[in-house]
Nucleic acid binder design. Structure first.
Length: 122
DNA sequence: AAACTGACGTGAT
DNA sequence: CATCACGCCAGTT
């Protein structure tokens, strides 16, 4: 197979990134959601939201990853509304108790933000 | 190698 | 709020 250009990161790096990213997605608790960019941040790849999207899009059919808990930073499902995957993701999220308001989830309420955990001091 | 694509994000309007 | 434009990144054609 001839490649005309090197990938932006090596295959090994990409495999490692994939593991870190999927491990992070696994940690999103049921009842909460997380943005692509935040997953990237937690996994150690700040600014690479689109890499997270790519990794998820490459998931095999049979997997245990709660991919549905990854949505856009604005609280919307990333798939265009006319795509079947959009309805599937929405149904999965609603089955875990999520409520869409105006086509969006309230990230302030259900957003998983482990980095924000801090001692109850102030 | 340039253009294109997309499961993204953000700021301006 | 809703759109839009533009920036961004990792491929893909």
């Amino acid at each position: 197979m001839i490649r005309t250009r090197q990938p932006c990161i090596s295959a090994a790096e990409r495999a490692a990134a994939r593991q870190k990213i999927l491990a992070t997605v696994q940690q999103i608790p049921k009842g909460q959601v997380c943005s692509y960019s935040y997953v990237a941040l937690i996994a150690g790849f700040p600014g690479r939201a689109r890499l997270v999207a790519k990794i998820l899009s490459d998931l095999p059919l049979a997997h245990q990853i709660p991919w549905q808990r990854v949505i856009t930073a604005s609280g919307r499902i990333a798939f265009p509304g006319d795509q079947p995957a959009h309805a599937i993701q929405r149904a999965l999220l609603e089955s875990e108790g999520q409520v869409f308001v105006g086509g969006k989830l309230r990230m302030a309420d259900v957003g998983w933000r482990p980095m924000d955990e801090r001692p109850l001091l102030d």
